[in-house]
Amino acid sequence: MVATEISPARRSRPPLSLPPGAWRLALPLVVLAVLFAVLIAIHPRGLAVASMTPWANQAVTLAFVAVGQFFVVVTRGLDLSIGAVLALSNALASELVSGTPVEIAVGVVAVLAVGCLCGAINGAAVVFGRIQPIVATLATGAIYTGLALIVRPTPGGDVDEALSDMLTYETFGFFPTSLILLFAVVYLVWWPLSRTVLGRSLYAIGSNESAAFMSGLNPKRARLLAHVLAGFFAACGGLFLAFQTLSGDASVGFSYTLNSIAAVVIGGASLAGGVGTVIGVIAGAYLLRTISTIMIFTGLPPMAQPLFEGLVLLAAVSVGAIEMITSRNKLKVLR
């Protein structure tokens, strides 16, 4: 594109419009802001510490898992085992994260390491085994679920309460610590990475793998990295869930897998790869959980809640459809 050339289309654009890609980030943020306002308006306690901390805490686990899912989705993959990795790390956390401070620290590191290992196995099956990500992670997911059930056959276990209190209450007496934790972990991992060639190649291979390869990027290494990141963030989610519930449960996985995909799509990423932002995905996770909270407070009959959740999900993913229907050139919408 020549920067000096001003096309008629460009001139006629209304002053408030954003570049095309920005809507993908702006839309979930705006919708989340609106839903947040609605929640405060109808919440019996309004904007108070007692209402904000639970709101922040309830979506942290899903946000971690969704961020992990996002890194795989952006490379044009999909991780169906991510809920199982969450369940396995949650079960392990309920065994390992208690006792002396040293034991706790070792336990946390061990849980995160197992998450990364699960991700690495997924990555190896995809990269070296040449199995499609969907089916590879479907199979490994069954294995991880089995392992989680062996570690923790029935919900229970023991998690350090002091650390749990620290992470699930407020910092400075008003700001939810869980939000700080979420953004700190994501920032510390992704910010340095996004400035390296390897980090950028995640987007590049998702956008056009052959072009990325011919530009000297390493698709194998990038794909492996994406799966390890997914495992790592799933383990973060599993740990946080353990701190939140003070126990482990091997059966929590599958709904997190499905909701993480939903959060990623609602957060503006494309399942076709190469598109999306971490912030958008976190907003997507909060969006889903905020809707559920709002439904509880609006006094909707409990029996109608699953229906409304489903309808909201459909409505959210259909937003992009308007462009498809109104598009005059059919070839633009076909792949």
Binding site: L78, L258, I261, A262, V265, L271, A272, M303, A304, Q305, P306, L307, F308, E309, G310, L311, L313, L314, V317, S318, G320, A321, M324, I325, V333
Partner: peptide
């Protein structure tokens, strides 16, 4: 017609049918 990825659309439909049946 709406061109929503099948992975996410059929997942949503599954949730809606579940919701309808429970409702």
């Amino acid at each position: 017609l709406l061109r929503v990825p099948a992975m996410i659309w059929t997942l949503g439909i599954n949730a809606v049918v579940l919701g309808l049946c429970i409702f």
